[in-house]
Design a protein around this nucleic acid. Structure first.
Lengths: 140, 140
DNA sequence: TTGGGTGCAAACTCTTTGCAGCGTT
DNA sequence: AACGCTGCAAAGAGTTTGCACCCAA
């Protein structure tokens, strides 16, 4: 069993939830998907193993426990899920090749500071998605 | 007729679309709603005057023409519409009082620069929504 | 006059929920 | 043994679409 799956089990039990087969399967699929999966994609991956409703329920729980995060890359798109990343990050979506890049850096922290100092706004969550053309597509 | 409605008519015809009653009504409702309206709210406002399907179609057209913009303030919320603002801005959503503040400033431009210079990413659109507690709720 | 736009209703996608039975604790 | 979790199916939001009629150009 993947070490992070063991961690999942521990977190679940710690918070009073049960460590079940379906939850482990959803977690493993989420991890191995390398991020940005839709529920539909997970459901295809787990066809015959976990019901779609249970996938939704598992993901919602993971989010509540701070283990996963949901993002909408486009206003019209379905929700996409990824394991929670310790660093604050946001997404760069290339409108040309469709690639989604995790951008990790100080930018979110800067936004946080800017709003706190300049406006007295206590930032809780920053949702930032940037659309544009990545370096590769730009050069081509 | 509101001056901006006259402008709407001109833009529509300029782009080869027709200036119709329903479109004007949706536009007026959007303007007078002072931003962040859902389609449902517009539909209530325009009940008996414009069909919901036509509201969706009108808003999609306004967006295409650069006259309106759609934002999702929360991942689980319905889409919200506002007239396009010439300045780049983003939204501060207070989790306590629910107030939505337009934040106009250089932040979006800074993000743009940062990505362009540091990563060769040509920014097209920046979608930024920040959740937290506003100054008023924070003080209380 | 003509074809783009509208209302109406049905379809569609994504997500949530009710419930009986199963499996973790 | 108890009850939280699951699968299944049905319901629920929000949004889109097909089609006949209407009206702006």
């Amino acid at each position: 069993m993947d070490p992070s799956t063991v961690e999942l089990d521990r977190t679940l039990r710690q918070e009073g939830y049960r460590a079940t087969g379906p939850r482990r399967l959803v977690w493993d699929a989420l991890i191995s998907a390398s991020g940005h999966v839709t529920v539909e994609e997970l459901a295809t991956e787990l066809a015959g193993q976990v019901d779609q409703a249970s996938i939704y329920r598992a993901l919602a729980l993971f989010e509540e426990l701070g283990l996963a995060r949901m993002t909408r890359l486009g206003d019209r798109d379905a929700a996409r899920w990824e394991p929670a990343h310790p660093d604050e990050h946001f997404h760069l979506v290339c409108t040309s090749c469709g690639e989604v890049d995790h951008h990790i850096g100080s930018l979110v922290a800067q936004i946080r500071e800017h709003l706190d100092e300049g406006h007295g706004f206590e930032v809780d969550e920053v949702e930032l998605v940037v659309h544009g053309r990545c370096r590769r597509c730009r050069g081509a």
